[in-house]
Amino acid sequence: MDGSGRDARQAAPAGRPPMEAIVAEYETALLRYAARILNNSAAAQDVVQNTFIKLFRSWKPGMHASPSLKSWLYRVAHNEAVDHIRRESRLHVLHEKQASDPAVAACADGRNCPLSDTEKHEAVLSLMHTLHPREQQVLLLRLEEGLSYREISRVTGRSEGNVGNLLHHAVRKLSTHLKNAGVVTS
C-alpha cells in the first residue's frame, strides 16, 4: 500500500489539479445547490467537500478547461446529496414533515390567513422539497443556477427535450401544491 501511495504522489505534481482555483470558483454555487436539495446547510458542506474530493481523485489533465467540468460538479454534487438523503432515510421523513408543516397546514383551510413574504417564501421552498428529487434538480439548476438546457442535460443525463418536460411538470405540480396549500388563491 505504501508503494501505491508513493506512486500516486509521484504522479500528482505533473497533472495536479488547480484545486484552489476550482474551489473558489464553484464552492458558492455548489453549496447553495446542495443546501437547497438537502434543506440543510451543514450537510451541504459535507456534500460539497466530497464532491471536490471526488474531483481530485478522478482528475484528468485538461479537465479544467473543459466546459463539462461545471456539469460534472453539479452531477456529482446532486448524486452525493441524494446519497446523503438516502443514507439518512430522509426522503421519506422529509415528505411526512412537509405534509405536517404547521405553516402550511394552518393556512390550508383558511384562505384569509395572510402570509408575510418570508412565510410565503418558506412555504414555497418547503413545497418545492415535496417534489421528486429529479424535479427539484431541474428546477434549481434552471432557475437558481441558471444553467443552460444543454448543461442541465449533461448533468442529469436526460435529453434537452426531456429536461424541458420535467421542468414544466415540476412547475405545474408546484403550482397545484401552492393552490392546495392556499399560498396562492386561484
Binding site: 474551489v23 464552492e27 458558492t28 453549496l31 447553495r32 443546501a35 437547497r36 446547510s41 451541504a44 458542506q45 460539497v48 467537500q49 413574504d117 418570508t118 410565503k120 417564501h121 418558506e122 414555497v124 421552498l125 418545492m128 428546477l139 434549481l140 432557475l143 437558481e144 412547475v171 405545474r172 408546484l174 403550482s175 401552492l178 399560498v183 396562492v184 386561484s186
Partner: peptide, 23 residues
Amino acid sequence: EIESTLGLLRDALAAPTHISAQL
C-alpha cells in the same frame, strides 16, 4: 398560473438565506 408560480419560486430562491457561501 405558471407565471405566478415561477415568480413566487424565484422570489423564494432569491430571498436571503442562511446558506453559507464558502466551505
